[in-house]
Design a protein around this nucleic acid. Structure first.
Ligand code: SF4
Length: 467
RNA sequence: GGCGGC
DNA sequence: GCCGCCAACATA
C-alpha cells in the first residue's frame, strides 16, 4: 500500500470497476498490496474489522474448542454474525460467488490484511500473534472450500499441484491405502504428487505415501504445502515491513496503527504480591493438611516418580507460586526431584526456562494466575498425566479408597463418591474440605488456591481461639 | 505440550 | 540438534 504518495489521493472517490477482476477468489495469498485509494475513515473501519475477526478466532480457541473442528468453526461464525462482520462469513462459503457483495468482502479482506501488516510488524510478539491468526484464518477459509473452488485457487496462483490420474491411483491403490493417514475413500479422494521437501511435516509424521522423491498428498492435506508457503512469505514480509517502517510514517494513520493491538491486549495488568512466602521444607506437611486433592496428588506423584509431564508442571507450578513458594525455592524444589532421574544440565536446558516464565521473569514478564477448578476439571488427562481433577478422572471406588485412607469416615466417603460420580466435582471437593477440616469452606470451592487459603486461615483461627 | 527462530 | 516464548483469571 502506498501511504507515502501524494496525500490528496486519499480523498478521492473509490474507483471500483475493476473489483471483479482483482477479487476473483475468496482465498487470497496476499502477494500484491492494494493499489486503490481509500478514504481515511474506511481505512480505519476496515482495520478494526480484521482485528475483531482475529480476536474472535482467538477467542474460539480460548473457549476450549479444538482448532478447525466444527465446534470451533460454528463458534466463530456465530460470533462473527453477532458482531455484524458478515463479510468474513461470506468468504467461508464452499463456492466463491462473483456477486458485488463477494467482491466487496474480498476487497475488505485484502486491504485489511495489508493494513495489519503495517500495524503488526512492529515487534516480535505482535508479528507472532498476527502470523498465527493469519494462518488460522487462511486455513479456516480453505477448509470450507469445495474441490472445485480449490482447483481454481491453485490455478489462479499458479500453484502447480495437479491430482494424479485415475490410472496412477489404481496402480498405487495398495500403497496409498496403507501409508496414508486419516479416514478417506480412495475413489473419491484426489491425490496430489508433491516434491517431498514441500511437505516435510507430513513426511516426518508418516502421514503420506512417499515414493521416488514425491509425496502423495490427499486433498484434505493439500493445505499443508500451501500453508507453509503462505507462512514463509508472510513471515518474511513482516520482517521486511518492519525494516521499512519509516516509509509508512504518516501522522494521519500512526495513532491508529500503533494503538490497534491495544484493542485486543485490553486490560490485563494485575500484580499483587501480598501472600506470605512458604518454607519449601513444609511442603510435604502442607500438602497433607492444606492442599486440595488434585494438588495433593500431583505432589505425591512428583515425590514418588521424580517427574511430571508438561501440563502438570505448569498447573502444579503455578499453584505453588500461588501459595507463596518463591522463585529460588521453586527452582530448587523441581531440580531436587528431577535430578534424581537426570543430570542437572539436562534439567536446566529443558525445564528452567519454563519455571522462569511461570514466575514472570522472562518474555512478556506476566504474572500468571494459577488455574481455576473449572479449567482443571475440564482438561482431559492422557496416560501418564496427573494434572486433572481427581473427582472427575478417578474411578469412584478409587476415590473412596483414597478418602478413607485419608481418615474420612466410610459414610462421608460414600457421599463424596456419589457426588463425584454425579459430576459434581466442586461440591464433592467442598464436602471433602468440610469433612477433613470439621468446618465447611465459606463459599464452596472454585479454586485450588482458595482451598489452600481457607484451610490455612481455619488453622490460624483455631490457634487464636485456643489462647 | 503448543508455537516460533536457526 | 540448539534456543526462546506462551498459557491464567478466584478473591473479600
Ligand atoms: S474441585 Fe478444584 S480444587 Fe477440588 S480437586 Fe477438583 S480441581 Fe482440585
Amino acid at each position: 500500500m502506498d501511504f507515502t504518495a501524494n496525500r490528496r489521493r486519499l480523498n478521492q472517490p473509490i474507483i471500483n470497476d475493476s473489483l471483479s477482476e482483482l477479487y476473483r477468489h475468496d482465498l487470497n495469498m496476499y502477494v500484491d498490496p492494494p493499489s486503490q485509494s481509500i478514504s481515511l475513515s474506511e481505512f480505519e473501519d476496515i482495520a478494526l474489522q480484521r482485528v475483531q475477526l482475529f480476536r474472535i478466532i482467538e477467542q474460539a480457541s480460548l473457549k476450549g474448542h479444538k482448532l478447525y473442528t466444527d465446534d470451533w468453526k460454528e463458534c466463530i461464525k456465530g460470533d462473527l454474525s453477532k458482531a455484524t462482520l458478515k463479510s468474513f462469513i461470506r468468504l467461508m462459503q464452499p463456492y466463491n460467488g462473483q456477486t458485488e457483495a463477494d467482491h466487496q468482502a474480498r476487497r475488505i479482506d485484502h486491504i485489511s490484511h495489508f493494513i495489519l501488516r503495517v500495524a503488526y510488524c512492529r515487534s516480535e510478539e505482535l508479528r507472532r500473534w498476527f502470523l498465527s491468526r493469519e494462518l488460522e484464518w487462511f486455513r479456516l477459509k480453505f477448509s470450507e472450500k469445495s474441490a472445485e473452488s480449490i482447483r481454481s485457487f491453485l490455478e489462479l496462483y499458479k500453484l502447480s499441484y495437479t491430482p494424479i490420474s485415475d490410472e496412477e491411483k489404481m496402480e498405487l491403490r495398495e500403497e496409498l491405502t496403507q501409508s496414508t493417514s486419516g479416514i478417506f475413500v480412495l475413489d473419491t479422494t484426489a491425490f496430489y504428487k508433491v516434491p517431498f521437501t514441500e511437505v516435510c511435516p507430513l513426511v516426518k509424521n508418516r502421514r503420506v505415501l512417499l515414493k521416488g522423491g514425491y509425496a502423495y498428498v490427499p486433498s484434505y492435506e493439500l493445505v499443508v504445502p500451501i500453508l507453509s508457503k503462505f507462512r514463509a512469505d508472510l513471515s518474511a514480509a513482516l520482517t521486511f515491513y518492519n525494516r521499512r517502517l519509516p516509509l509508512f510514517d504518516d501522522d494521519r494513520i500512526n495513532p491508529l496503527l500503533t494503538n490497534l493491538h491495544r484493542v485486543h491486549t485490553g486490560n490485563n495488568y494485575v500484580v499483587r504480591e501480598n501472600t506470605d512466602s512458604v518454607d519449601p521444607a513444609n511442603l510435604d506437611a502442607y500438602s497433607k493438611k492444606h492442599f486440595p486433592l488434585c494438588m495433593r496428588h500431583m505432589h505425591d506423584v512428583l515425590r514418588a516418580e521424580h517427574h511430571h509431564k508438561h501440563q502438570a508442571r505448569l498447573t502444579y507450578g503455578l499453584f505453588l507460586k500461588g501459595i507463596g513458594l518463591l522463585y529460588e525455592d521453586a527452582v530448587r524444589f523441581w531440580r531436587d526431584e528431577f535430578t534424581k532421574k537426570m543430570d542437572s544440565g539436562k534439567f536446566e536446558k529443558s525445564y528452567l526456562y519454563n519455571i522462569k516464565h511461570q514466575y514472570g521473569k522472562v518474555g512478556r514478564m506476566l504474572n500468571y494466575t494459577p488455574y481455576s477448578c473449572m479449567k482443571i476439571i475440564l482438561t482431559n488427562v492422557g496416560p501418564g498425566e496427573h494434572h486433572g481433577c481427581p473427582f472427575r478422572n478417578w474411578d469412584p471406588n478409587f476415590i473412596k479408597q483414597k478418602l478413607v485412607e485419608g481418615g474420612i469416615s466410610n459414610e462421608n466417603a460414600n457421599e463424596i463418591k456419589e457426588l463425584a460420580s454425579g459430576g459434581h466435582c466442586q461440591v464433592a471437593c467442598g464436602k471433602y474440605f468440610e469433612y477433613s477440616h470439621g468446618k465447611a469452606a465459606a463459599n464452596g470451592i472454585n479454586h485450588p488456591n482458595q482451598y489452600f487459603e481457607e484451610s490455612v486461615n481455619l488453622e490460624k483461627g483455631n490457634a487464636e481461639s485456643k489462647k
